[in-house]
Design a protein around this nucleic acid. Structure first.
Ligand code: MN
Ligand code: MN
Ligand code: ZN
Ligand code: ZN
Lengths: 137, 137
DNA sequence: TCTAAACTTAGACTATGTCTAATGTATGAG
DNA sequence: CTCATACATTAGACATAGTCTAAGTTTAGA
């Protein structure tokens, strides 16, 4: 377990129970965009007694407190994103994997001038196939 | 019922049963981005005996034949879009309603130059609140 | 130590979508 | 026209994701 995880939770007004720290320890540090049940599977490895309800409750609590965002991008899965800054997403249509695209790699023009809509937020959703990166990963 | 719906289905290699024509008659002409169960509710008004399985089968068939697209935009609902041309989407966060944004109202720069990704398709997903349009609708 | 609030748990419940087995319908060969 | 066959439809079972509930456990303060 990473040290300091409890402090992060407290700083966001969350009581750091053992279960919550174990969940945070995984979900706040991954870029895998996991679903709730994937988080549950992962957390059970180090905390076998944790219940499904606690994982769902905790993830929803983290979203409410601004530690996570949830995204609806692929069929039948609500996924959680530890990157709470503005960014875009790329979905590999073969693997289903979701990749972050930093905000300034793309630029969207005229979005603030949409007539009849008050824009609160936007992102570009790109689909395709990720190229195999030589060597690494 | 609109005339000519059966011909549209046949042109796409689909046998125009009465159920399929009734489904097409609604879903190919709405801009409401309905879910499958919403299509079922609607079609039952004019075809009370239609089964849920037939509606799901038919919608999936229409997608396979290119008459519809399905979109994953909001939690727990796969919605169907009769607009199969490239376009963006606006989601009203209060009502959940989905609005089409024509392709050329927005412009995305640098999307083809993403390093390491083969882009097949993309869209901008905008969230916010739709302003009340004076008068109409 | 005692109490109350907060948290966790197992499992029931709901909603969306798929699958299956039986029944119904269209079609064309004879 | 008859009937065999393929295709379509149906009701309901099944699968999965997510929420809710009621009971038990932990925590922290008086
Ligand atoms: Mn951390
Ligand atoms: Mn038509
Ligand atoms: Zn992300
Ligand atoms: Zn659309």
């Amino acid at each position: 377990m990473r040290t300091g995880e409890a402090a992060v939770l407290e700083a966001h007004g969350i009581k750091p129970s053992a279960q919550r720290v174990a969940i945070a320890d995984y979900v706040l540090h991954t870029d895998e965009h996991p679903s709730a049940d994937e988080v549950w599977e992962r957390v059970k490895r180090v905390f076998p007694m944790v219940s499904r309800a606690t994982v769902y409750n905790t993830l929803n609590l983290f979203v409410a407190k601004g530690l996570l965002r949830h995204l609806v991008l692929t069929e039948g899965r609500l996924v959680f994103d530890s990157n709470v800054d503005k960014h875009h997403h790329f979905i590999d249509e073969e693997t289903g994997k979701i990749y972050d695209l930093p905000w300034d790699t793309l630029e969207v023009s005229r979005v603030e001038q949409l007539k009849g809509f008050d824009v609160r937020d936007y992102q570009v959703l790109v689909r395709g196939k990720k190229r195999r990166t030589r060597g690494a990963r």
